[in-house]
Amino acid sequence: MIPVDVFLGFVFFFQTGIGVQGNLFLMYLFSFLFFTGQRLRPIDLILTQLTLANSLLLLSRGIVQGLAALGLKNVLDDIGCKIVFYLHRVGRGLSLSTTCLLSGFQAIIISPHNPRWINLKARVPRYIMPSVLLCWIFHMLQNILILMKLEGPRDTGNTTETKVYGYCSVNVTTNISESLYALVISLPDAVCMTFISFTTCYKVYLLYKHHKRVQQVHTDSVSHRAFPETRATQMILLLVSTFVTFYLLNSILTGCMHSMTFEPWLLHSSIFLAACFPMISPFVLIKSDPQIMRYYSAVQDRKSPHTK
């Protein structure tokens, strides 16, 4: 039988490799089209940001955690541990805030065509880039506190002053108030999750109204056709529901890990769940958004030699 440590290391390396390939494919696709002057949708900028955040999240944790699972826990010193964990937290926060931005943007786009919403829809594309930059700045500043709490790996015997989590340890006797630290870290996440839940329910309501209206107006042959707005919204709903599921499961395990005696299986399970959405999301987008495959065909046409 394969030892548990070897199996866990393989799982983390496999998860990281597959996820990074999927995200880099989408990042390359959007970048190539942008720099060659191809017209992109406003939502593609948000999707590019999401793939970048997912790649950062996977690369900053998956490889090192795979090595730690194999028993190589001293591959990082204090500085390396701080950098890796800081990048992981920034990537995780960006993934959450970008998903929140994506859900809100889609809710505005499919809203009713009344004068109030039309004016907002016209202005929204101009706010995407500033919103993306604001997300980066916020999460880079928010997670500076982590640099003050993390240390390199320590002996597990000194459990009263440090908690050891794989390749890093956390100083629990820091001068920073634990309750203040928890508030700073968890409050933005709670706000984003609340907003995502609200916009998701709103989009489901709009889809239901749209479906009922189509049934009343069109014939059966037309009413069963997937309209672009409906397909795009269904894609975002699938992506958001996938994110929410894995995020909540990861948050529950993380809370258990910090509130009880450290157990290795909690750490491995939490890290695995945290990387599931970054690994799956690019393939969800490729499968559910037909425009991505049209982009890919356009890239192949531009790269292939012209034949008469």
Rank of each mutant, 00 (worst) to 15 (best):
V6S: 08
P305N: 05
N143T: 07
L94A: 10
H224W: 13
L273D: 03
P278D: 11
V299E: 07
H88T: 06
L266G: 00
F277V: 04
L26P: 09
G166Q: 04
L187Q: 05
Y127I: 12
D189M: 12
V64A: 03
Q21G: 11
P125G: 05
H113W: 07
M1L: 11
I109D: 02
F34G: 02
T48N: 10
L70E: 02
L187I: 13
K308E: 15
A275D: 09
F283G: 03
R123K: 13
V6H: 08
V164I: 05
D301Q: 14
K149M: 10
S297R: 14
D44M: 05
V299F: 07
D44S: 14
R213H: 14
H210K: 13
E229L: 12
L67Q: 08
L33I: 09
T159M: 01
M257I: 06
V184K: 02
L76G: 00
S60P: 07
M257K: 05
L70R: 05
T194K: 04
A226L: 14
L249M: 15
P305F: 08
S297P: 00
N175R: 07
T98H: 02
I18L: 14
F198K: 05
G62C: 02
G9K: 06
Q49H: 10
H88I: 02
F195W: 15
S259R: 02
V172K: 07
L238K: 08
I110S: 05
K203D: 11
L285F: 13
N74Y: 13
F246W: 13
L249E: 10
V132M: 11
I43G: 05
H211A: 15
L29E: 10
S251G: 04
L70G: 00
M27Q: 06
N143R: 06
I2L: 15
K212M: 15
N158F: 01
W265F: 09
R154M: 04
L187R: 00
T219C: 07
I146Q: 00
I128G: 01
Y205V: 05
V299S: 02
E178R: 03
R154S: 00
R116E: 09
L207P: 08
I271L: 09
G37M: 06
I146C: 01
I108W: 09
L248V: 15
D78T: 08
M27S: 12
V244A: 11
T156A: 02
D189R: 06
S223Q: 11
Y167S: 03
D289A: 05
